[in-house]
């Protein structure tokens, strides 16, 4: 795994963790599935993993956007 990929993933995990912390529900009794704490845990973990994926994809695609721009700029400058 390249250093850039590790940094991107690290940023995605931190950003998702902050989002997760801010997303604490207003209700505190976990009342919808009262019989299964495991289901609640799964719900939180799945949400976190999906958020990491979205952040990671975002950072990766933003980088590519800048790379495209640099390539096009170079092509324009090469043109007579």
């Amino acid at each position: 795994m390249s250093a850039q990929r590790i940094v991107r993933l690290g940023l995605a995990i931190v950003a998702s963790a902050v989002s997760l912390a801010l997303s604490s529900p207003y209700w505190r009794d976990f009342g919808y599935w009262p019989e299964s704490r495991r289901l609640w845990t799964l719900y939180f973990v799945l949400g976190f993993l999906l958020a990491v994926y979205v952040f990671d994809a975002f950072l990766g695609r933003l980088r590519t956007l800048f790379e495209h721009d640099a390539l096009e700029r170079a092509t324009r400058e090469d043109e007579p």
Binding site: S19, L22, S23, Y43, F44, G47, F48, A51
Partner: peptide
């Protein structure tokens, strides 16, 4: 409340 908050963030 949880997924709604997380994904809208």
């Amino acid at each position: 409340q949880f997924w709604g908050s997380l994904f809208s963030a």
